[in-house]
Simulated assay, not measured.
Amino acid sequence: MSAPPWGHKPPPVDDVATYWTSKPPAISPRCNYWIMRHHNGTWRANRWLRRDGYHTAAERLGVWIWEYLHLIRPLFDEDDGLN
């Protein structure tokens, strides 16, 4: 199977709640993947991610909750003109 233009999705983090209130020592490869896709214009949040709570959204994306709240969710708000 050939890779899509943006590459294969890295595996999800083991437990999304591991880094909930504190910043992880390094950003997960999966989080970097979503941020890169967003910056390249090949991914935007769908209605499910926008409606989900932060825990469910982090699980859907395969990132730690801290990453979702502080790195990914602000991208959605930026798209909506809330920043």
Rank of each mutant, 00 (worst) to 15 (best):
M1E: 09
M1K: 13
P4E: 13
P5C: 01
P5Y: 00
H8S: 10
K9N: 02
K9V: 09
P11D: 06
P11Y: 02
P12N: 02
D15P: 06
V16N: 02
V16Q: 07
A17E: 08
Y19F: 15
Y19W: 12
W20M: 12
W20H: 13
T21E: 07
T21P: 01
K23E: 15
P25E: 09
A26Q: 15
S28K: 10
S28V: 03
P29L: 14
R30T: 13
C31E: 01
N32G: 14
W34L: 01
I35C: 12
M36C: 14
M36V: 09
M36T: 15
R37K: 11
H38I: 03
G41V: 11
W43H: 00
R44C: 08
R44L: 11
R44V: 05
N46R: 15
R47K: 10
R47G: 12
W48T: 12
R50C: 04
G53C: 02
G53Y: 00
Y54F: 06
T56M: 05
T56G: 07
A57H: 00
A57V: 00
A58G: 02
A58S: 03
A58V: 00
E59V: 04
R60L: 05
L61K: 02
L61W: 02
G62E: 03
V63C: 11
V63F: 05
V63M: 04
W64G: 13
W64V: 02
I65R: 10
I65C: 08
H70D: 05
H70M: 04
L71T: 09
P74Q: 01
L75S: 03
F76A: 09
F76Q: 09
D77Q: 11
E78N: 10
E78Q: 13
D79N: 12
D80A: 13
L82V: 14
